[in-house]
Nucleic acid binder design. Structure first.
Lengths: 204, 204
DNA sequence: TTTGTTTGTCGTCAATTGACGACTTATGTC
DNA sequence: GACATAAGTCGTCAATTGACGACAAACAAA
């Protein structure tokens, strides 16, 4: 099998394995999964840690679609629709079992990867959501950056936790996903004015 | 050192160790932490797994205060106060770094412990919160049990995720905790009517 | 055919790790 | 003192695990 193809196969299987059994999953299990000898892995990745890093970059940071920022900022559509669309897509493309497990394992392992994802993507995301919601209502935001993030986290955290509940805690999920998204979007939009005013009052 | 005392010490150190380094932390490290030989551990716990189970029972299920149910059902106080009080207490007593790390490690390890905690405690909690909120507003709830849980999870998930963000992702937390709680309680209460009506309409 | 490069395996090393048999030391108790 | 029970250590075994040197097979190019 040619170099690139084999490498891609290993990376894919490694992603599945680490997501399932944690970052301590063994290289021998990975080799067996690929149908190759354990020694061959080391022709493609110098150490297990290099492999882990690459798994993280492709499987955690990769799935986020840059186009989502554009869609969330499309002022021709009502914020309610934009949020509903975004979070349904985000749940499907990112917050699946594999992504969540990898992300949590990495975060717990201290491997300051999660902070990277958070600071590089989610920070911008919460800012966008809050700014766009405020704009739609003709509000002029006057609060600390940290408060903006906290407001954005209300909906993002609630939906992320729904995914954790579903995929990690294996809670039953009889209520269909789009209905859950609809609920959270509704709660967020209906409570938005009052939470913003809370922060504006206090943070001045 | 007497039997009971030594055993308690081991249990405590084991909790710290497993929370920090995961359920794969080594018995030798634990022994060193206790200042005893590794062999001695096996006089108190037959296997590592027995130790793990006991750590889980005392450190995960233990911290939940039964009195919280009574407080949440105290109809002499407005729901807003009850929720604010409860979630500040819950964040302090349960959702700390140690508890969260243990809980997540256990959940990821498939060790169907998390489902236990969820089904035995959180299920009842969400039911109480939703029922009490509805009662305060003179509403008669008519929706599926699963929908009730989902409604309760909006606030419980949002606050749990705030704790995860803070302790696991190590996101900066400039906004003081009581202000975050206030925000989530406010969002929940102001959105409550509309989400309930959403489920009632659809679930019939 | 020869030669060099790529693709791949075998076997092994050193460190780690859960578990435990055998033994030692301390603390009463009659 | 004698003797039992509790508290504790030493050393080791077998299995696991990341890493790698040495060698074999496939294959293209001259």
């Amino acid at each position: 099998m040619p170099y690139a193809e084999r490498r891609a196969q290993i990376l894919k299987k490694a992603t599945e394995l680490f997501a399932e059994y944690g970052l301590t999953a063994q290289t021998r299990a990975l080799a067996a999964e690929c149908g190759i000898s354990q020694r061959l892995l080391y022709r493609f990745f110098p150490t297990k840690e290099d492999l882990l890093r690459e798994v993280y970059d492709t499987a955690i940071v990769g799935p986020f679609q840059a186009v989502w920022f554009a869609e969330l900022s499309d002022r021709n559509r009502p914020m309610h629709d934009r949020l509903t669309k975004f979070y349904n897509d985000y749940l499907d493309a990112v917050l699946g079992r594999r992504w969540l497990r990898l992300f949590l394992y990495s975060s717990l392992a201290e491997a300051d990867m999660a902070p990277n994802y958070i600071s590089s993507i989610i920070t911008k995301l919460t800012e966008t959501i809050v700014a766009e919601t405020a704009h739609e209502r003709g509000m002029k935001l006057d609060m600390e950056q940290e408060a903006v993030h906290e407001v954005g986290w209300t909906i993002h955290g609630a939906i992320s936790h729904y995914a954790i509940r579903r995929h990690i805690y294996r809670a039953s999920h009889v209520i269909p996903q789009d209905m859950v998204v609809a609920m959270h979007v509704r709660v967020f939009l209906s409570g938005f004015d009052s939470i913003v005013s809370q922060f504006e009052r206090v943070e001045r």
